[in-house]
Design a protein around this nucleic acid. Structure first.
Lengths: 98, 98
DNA sequence: CCATTAAGTTTTGTTTTGGAACTTATGGCA
DNA sequence: TGCCATAAGTTCCAAAACAAAACTTAATGG
């Protein structure tokens, strides 16, 4: 079975992991919980490449974990904010921290 | 930065993920929390290939999350049991389930 | 004997990742 | 005006990880 097919799984843990279980994704959420919101902030703190970061952010927005907001129109600049869905995983990261 | 270098990170979340943050690994722990302990049980329920399963189990044992026990000497058969360290993540998986 | 079971290992081809350079649009400043 | 900087990506290519399926080993049951 491919990892990409995990979203159809009966198990809620598996479905959660199909969204946030890729490499680096939970480190983006960690940064969000610490107050970071911009592409360059994530890129600077997590160690992942910009390439992967862009991909992960796109996925998290598609899945409703983050919201992409325009914070400057000229030049176009965006940041990423936690949604209610994104907040739900905060306690899980706290456990991993401890 | 490579994913494999994450274990040196200052952040405790990052170090936790360097052990359990690979694809499929947390699904092995889920199965353990549900009472499964044998290679074939993990292989049957999670959807990962035997190849990857063997690799992940090895890592989890090396990191002290699981313990590999001989439950039959002839033929040689092994199972995998949660250690105290492995139990620590149980609440994190519960949050992902909910 | 032959089939079956458990716990892996091997092989081969496909995906994903990592590193680094490049792009686009704008703003500041000399 | 011309030049450098910044933010948020995108592109390219090689290296690493993964997926699927077959194979291995050792013992047991019929």
């Amino acid at each position: 079975m491919k990892w990409s097919e995990l979203s159809d799984n009966w198990c809620p843990v598996a479905r959660t992991l199909s969204v946030v279980g890729d490499r680096w994704t939970l480190l983006i959420l960690r940064d969000c919980y610490l107050g970071k919101s911009k592409f360059e902030e994530f890129a600077g703190s997590s160690g992942m490449t910009r390439h992967i970061l862009a991909e992960r952010l796109k996925r998290l927005v598609e899945e409703g974990v983050l919201e992409r907001r325009t914070y400057s129109s000229a030049p176009k600049r965006y940041d990423y904010l936690l949604t209610a869905k994104g907040e739900e995983l905060r306690p899980a990261l706290k456990i991993m921290k401890d």
